[in-house]
Computed example of a mutant assay.
Amino acid sequence: MRANGVANWDASAYKTFSFTHNENVNLQFRAESLNLFNRVQFGYPGLQQGSSNFGIVSSQLNNPRQLQFSLRLNY
């Protein structure tokens, strides 16, 4: 049996803010998205011939969309 390939897109964006009185200190805001388009990767179908779930896909292998925000202070 074959299964579909992985179609998982991750993305991130960040912005760095510098403080004018001290150039060695800056603050970075980050936004990250895992599984950006929220695509499902189905699990493998049941492989045991003669069982009640033979050929039935009943699981998901990847996680749903996850968003993550963070602040990073560099000094």
Rank of each mutant, 00 (worst) to 15 (best):
Q49D: 09
A31D: 02
F42E: 09
N74M: 12
P45Y: 01
V57H: 02
G43Q: 07
N74V: 08
S70Y: 00
L36E: 02
F42N: 12
N35H: 04
R30N: 11
N35C: 02
V57Y: 05
N74P: 05
Y75F: 15
L67S: 05
R65G: 04
E32R: 04
L67R: 03
F37K: 07
R39H: 15
L36R: 00
R65H: 05
G46E: 04
A31C: 05
L27E: 06
Q60N: 08
S52R: 11
L61K: 04
R72E: 10
L61P: 04
L34N: 02
Y75C: 04
L71Q: 08
V57A: 06
S59A: 12
Q41N: 09
Q66H: 08
N74R: 12
S33N: 11
L73K: 13
R72H: 07
F37L: 15
V57L: 09
R30T: 07
N63A: 12
L73P: 08
F29N: 05
F69V: 13
R30E: 01
Q68L: 14
L61C: 01
Q49N: 10
V25P: 03
G46C: 10
L71S: 01
G43H: 03
S33H: 03
Q48V: 14
N63E: 13
N62K: 00
R39V: 05
V57N: 05
F54N: 00
L27F: 01
F37A: 13
N74S: 11
N53E: 08
L34M: 11
S59Y: 06
L47N: 10
P45E: 10
F42I: 08
N26I: 06
L34G: 04
F29M: 10
G46A: 08
F69I: 10
R30K: 12
V57F: 07
S33Y: 04
G50S: 01
F37P: 05
Y44W: 10
N62R: 01
Y44N: 14
L47T: 11
L47G: 13
